[in-house]
């Protein structure tokens, strides 16, 4: 995260701690060593098998939409979706797609994307993730 590039020394911070930034960003899960259940937050014991040994794993960055809704209560409608990333369900906001039922389909293939949320007063840039239709 602290790696500086040639153009400047901008620091980056992920929107959530399970988003790992870098050349190829990915979502990280804590996987139960016993039963392979995956969690995005910390657990004292596995909710599935009660084991207490976890390993960090990379969640697949391409998946399929298994459910979605278009939330229209705020200032801007957005698509909330559940994406099955090779067996790991992920919740996300879809990017790169119009927030309309015609534009989103169940079963649609999508991939992890990241985007800038802007900089804070110290010049640190926040990076968030979404999923966008695969090209």
């Amino acid at each position: 995260m602290a790696e500086s590039d040639v153009t400047g020394s901008m620091e980056q911070v992920p929107f959530v701690d399970y988003l790992v930034l870098g050349e190829e960003p990915y979502l990280r899960a804590n996987e139960c060593q016993n039963c392979q259940a995956r969690f995005f937050d910390r657990r004292n014991a596995c909710a599935s098998c009660f084991g207490n040994e976890f390993t960090n794993v990379k969640v697949a960055t391409i998946g399929e939409i298994t459910s979605f809704t278009i939330v229209e209560m705020g200032p801007m409608p957005y698509v909330s979706a559940i994406v099955d990333c090779d067996g790991t369900p992920v919740r996300c906001t879809l990017t790169g797609v119009e927030a309309s039922p015609e534009a989103v389909q169940l079963g649609m293939k999508v991939e992890l994307t990241t985007y800038s949320m802007g900089e804070d007063s110290g010049g640190t840039e926040a990076i968030a993730f979404g999923f966008a239709p695969t090209k």
């Binding site: 959530v16 809704t69 926040a126």
Partner: peptide, 13 residues
């Protein structure tokens, strides 16, 4: 989740 803002709308709903 160590979020730096509200997840509502940012990570689905």
């Amino acid at each position: 989740f160590g979020a730096i803002g509200s997840t509502e709308g940012r990570i689905g709903t």
